[in-house]
Amino acid sequence: MNFIEARKLIHEYIRRDEEENVESILTALDGVDLDVKQGEFVAVLGHNGSGKSTLAKHLNLLLHPSGGTLWVDGKNTQEADSLWDIRQNVGMVFQNPDNQIIASVVEEDVAFGPENIGIPTSEIWGRVERSLKSVGMIQYRQHSPNKLSGGQKQRVAIAGVMAMEPKCIVLDEPTAMLDPNGRKEVLDAVVRLNQEKGVTVILITHYMEEVIRADKVYVMDHGKVVMQGVPRAIFSQVDALKSYRLDVPQITLLAHELHEAGLPIPDGILTRQELVEALCQLY
């Protein structure tokens, strides 16, 4: 069985007036199927309001589905007693780094998760050290989070999740509030965790550049999964992506335009290197 398996997942936000009558229903998830294997790096793409954040919050039970089924780590999320088990195994990193750091010292914040799940003191120190090292923030362990840059704060947040030793981390637009440098820092840390520690990563984003390194990409629009496949296959469909209001990476776009203009360049160019090679092949 896959690590995460969603079948026909539905989530409705119901707005009620004062007499509890239903005013309007917003279907944020509309029959989503999702399969994530242990150790995979999966990206979920979508523009604002596509339901991707709602999906993310289901994965560690911050939200419960209105319909359909969701299995995480072999447990059905409908069963109440699996809640803390699942939260421990599926860590979550949010968009705003300031609003998810609890303590006023970096190492104490990283220890917050392990403290909650009742890890003995001596082991907490080891976990804090390991997870701060894994995101390259160990030299800042005594610092106050207020003095760190956005990218550094977000890496501390990732370390805080890693200290709970989850099998999977879900990152809900972790780079949306960062500058390009911070974005690269965070993304590199995430990719490293995936490759070196074998942590399953689910990255929710609307930056297409970030999903190039993913094993599998899901594209969401209006609560539905509209495309899925390896990045190369997704990126070769430039026109479809544009119709879902997603920005194709510049290199891919350039290759696509050249192709349209009649040059025999293959579809789905992802990096500058590939484009250079493809162009050199021509003559």
Binding site: K57, N60, L62, W84, R87, Q88, G91, M92, F94, N96, N99, Q100, I102, E107, E108, A111, F112, G113, P114, E115, N116, I117, G118, I119, P120, T121, I124, W125, V128, G160, V161, M164
Partner: peptide, 23 residues
Amino acid sequence: NDLAMAMEARCYHGGEGRTKMKP
């Protein structure tokens, strides 16, 4: 609101059964 969600996502459920890094 964000913070409460982040705390819950990190398994915060009150003081019961909580250990300390620096007791």
